[in-house]
């Protein structure tokens, strides 16, 4: 039980990462694959935040005098996650626009039926 409460964020983050990877590997519907990519990215972001967390920490903002700098969480992962989220949004938007185009061409989003290109 102690192990669970100590590592709950890691478990959650990697749970999301595995769910995302599993969806990408197994599903055939393009929209589901895109959802999988999105879940994977969320998991990675949660993992990065968890790396910088301190037990009972506060946000690293000196909004009023007298805040204890010792309790503040690491600001770097938060900055990294901001970047990672924006990149995730960019990939998601592009993927959805390509999915729209693909649907107009083939009339389906099933990746098994879309086989113009072959090895």
């Amino acid at each position: 039980m102690d192990f669970l409460s100590n590592n709950i964020y890691y478990i959650g983050a990697f749970g999301l990462i595995f769910i995302g990877l599993f969806i990408i590997l197994v599903k055939h519907n393009l929209i589901k694959v895109i959802i999988g990519i999105s879940i994977l990215e969320t998991g990675v972001n949660l993992f990065l935040i968890a790396v910088g967390y301190i037990s009972k920490g506060t946000a690293p903002i000196f909004s009023r005098p007298g805040l204890n700098a010792k309790n503040m969480v690491d600001p770097v992962p938060q900055a990294l996650v901001l970047t990672a989220i924006v990149i995730g949004v960019a990939v998601l938007a592009l993927a959805l626009s390509l999915a729209i185009r693909l649907y107009k061409h083939y009339g389906t989003l099933d990746l098994r039926k879309i086989k113009e290109q072959r090895w």
């Binding site: 694959v33 993992f47 790396v51 990939v91 993927a95």
Partner: peptide, 23 residues
């Protein structure tokens, strides 16, 4: 469009793995 989607899926899984490594 089809090859771009293939590229995008593989590429974004790759960059997620890269980000986990960096983390």
């Amino acid at each position: 469009i089809e090859s771009s989607i293939k590229y995008l899926i593989q590429g974004s899984v790759g960059s997620s793995l890269l980000l986990i490594g960096i983390g």
